[in-house]
Design a protein around this nucleic acid. Structure first.
Length: 420
RNA sequence: GUGGCUGUAGCUCAGUUGGUUAGAGCACCAGAUUGUGGAUCUGGGGGUCGGGGGUUCAAUUCCCCUCAGCCACCCCA
């Protein structure tokens, strides 16, 4: 093992793993495209306050997980820890209010300074969608159904369960929070130390505590459903009805709480039990106050993000690399002619491998290792006759073919590059 | 940020109760085979035993620190 190591929590994606990532990413882009979500790319870093202001001063992401640095002009910049804030900023900067409903799909690296773990990296990759400018519950249903469609496309729908909750509107939320904090304060002495922290930072989180000493207290806690305004309650009902109409199944999870301040109303997570403690694979919710909070026009929004690493770990089929056609030449003259042939065939859409050195035996071995479908062999014999030897590497059959018929005969061996 | 486990070749792992020059399988390179692959045989290259310090005549082995990986907590995709 070398001393030269990647930075903690980062990793190199080599051929096979890269193919898995690409598969997830292109599937997402295609599905999002069908729903009318256009791909966008926002910068990988933003002014620090883009994240600090929106994610909430007490959220873990802001208090301890951001990669923040000063640039040479003295501005405080931050590597994006998530995608929504950047899209919201772009929405404001670019005046996209004109284009609402605005639908965006993004994909790219995110950065959080956390302790690495299974399914958790300091640089990781997310795909995500945002639907901005639609306050009606149909938007929630559409965005969730887009998530379902992606998981279905990846063959992962059966590995996940959709958890659904509502965080209500701000009126419901402040009413409930008051009651809840009051209740937990009454049990402060018996709460776990983590939950005592949460009492000031994020009381809703206590409901999701894993500490055994908290369980009985949680069980008797007041229920959010009793404090929802009729509007918030009706909104949630419409979301559920919409999901039912699409035959999308879900479980209600009153303990599902999002960590970031900007969420309201619908919150959802697709969870798997196959990734250890990091079971959340695709999650999101509604963020009606976010854009206004950032200084833009009051505009509702909803979206989700999914972890490419986590999704690709669930994939059991590793996409195979393209099977090339090997061109094998012998002799200086044949070699020059074969290089030209390789170039022409590549321009024609074929995947061609051609070794740089080695005798026929070596090159066939190499072709075999690359899983080449066929080999085109060109030596002195073939040169003199303007022909080539075409060998099917699966069957072992070979034939002499005139050079001008080669491209046609190769058609059965043409590889589809889609997705790979 | 907290706790537990683990670091020997590119990969998977042996080994050393502290003692010459640290091994195997797979992978890689070459030859058997200067025009025929997937098999076999022969040979070869590749190691700061994660890094630093300490104890010792002697450390890959024991001790301390550190770095990294894995797992869990916290939190999240």
């Amino acid at each position: 093992m070398s001393n030269v190591q990647p930075v903690r929590g980062t990793k190199d994606l080599l051929a096979q793993e890269m193919r898995r990532h690409s598969l997830v990413e292109t599937a997402a882009e295609h599905i999002a495209g069908r729903f009318g979500y256009a791909k966008i790319s926002t910068p990988i870093f933003e002014f620090t306050n883009v994240f600090a202001r929106t994610l909430g001063d007490t959220s873990d992401i802001v208090t301890k997980e951001m990669y923040t640095f000063q640039d040479k002009g003295g501005d405080s910049l931050t590597l994006r820890p998530e995608g929504t804030a950047g899209v919201a900023r772009a929405f404001i900067s670019e005046g996209l209010k004109q284009q609402t409903p605005y639908r965006a799909f993004y994909s790219g690296p995110m950065f959080r300074h956390e302790r690495p773990q299974k399914g958790r990296m300091r640089q990781f990759h997310q795909i995500g969608v945002e639907l901005i400018g639609v306050g009606e519950p149909v938007a929630d249903v559409e965005v969730i159904s887009l998530g379902v469609a992606l998981l279905r496309e990846l063959g992962l729908l059966n590995d996940t369960v959709l958890h659904l909750n509502t965080l209500g509107d701000s009126e419901s939320r402040s009413a409930y929070l008051a009651v809840l904090v009051d209740y937990f304060k009454g049990h402060e002495k018996t709460l776990s130390s983590d939950s005592r922290e949460r009492l000031t930072k994020n009381p809703l989180r206590i409901l999701d505590s894993k500490a055994t000493e908290d369980q009985s207290i949680i069980a008797n806690a007041p229920a959010y459903s009793d404090y929802l305004t009729t509007e918030a309650s009706a909104f949630f009902t419409q979301v559920r009805t919409g999901l039912d109409d699409l035959d999308i199944s879900y479980v209600l999870n009153p303990k599902l709480v999002r960590g970031l301040d900007y969420y309201s109303h619908t919150a959802f997570e697709f969870v798997t039990d196959k990734l250890g403690a990091q079971g959340t694979v695709l999650a999101g919710g509604r963020y009606d106050g976010l854009i206004e909070m950032m200084g833009g026009p009051a505009t509702p929004g909803i979206g989700w993000a999914a972890g490419i690493e986590r999704l690709s770990m669930l994939l059991d089929d590793v996409p195979a690399p393209i099977r090339p056609i090997a061109i094998i030449s012998m002799g200086a003259e044949a070699d020059r002619m074969a290089r030209k042939l390789a170039y022409d065939l590549r321009l024609d859409g074929f995947a061609i491998d051609m070794a740089y050195r080695g005798n026929l035996s070596k090159r066939l071995k190499r072709a075999n290792k690359l899983q080449a479908r066929a080999a085109i062999i060109i030596g002195d014999d073939e040169l003199g006759r303007d022909s080539a030897t075409l060998r099917d590497l699966d069957s072992g059959e070979q034939q002499h073919v005139p050079l001008n018929e080669l491209a046609n005969l190769l058609m059965p061996f043409r590889e589809d590059f889609g997705g790979a």
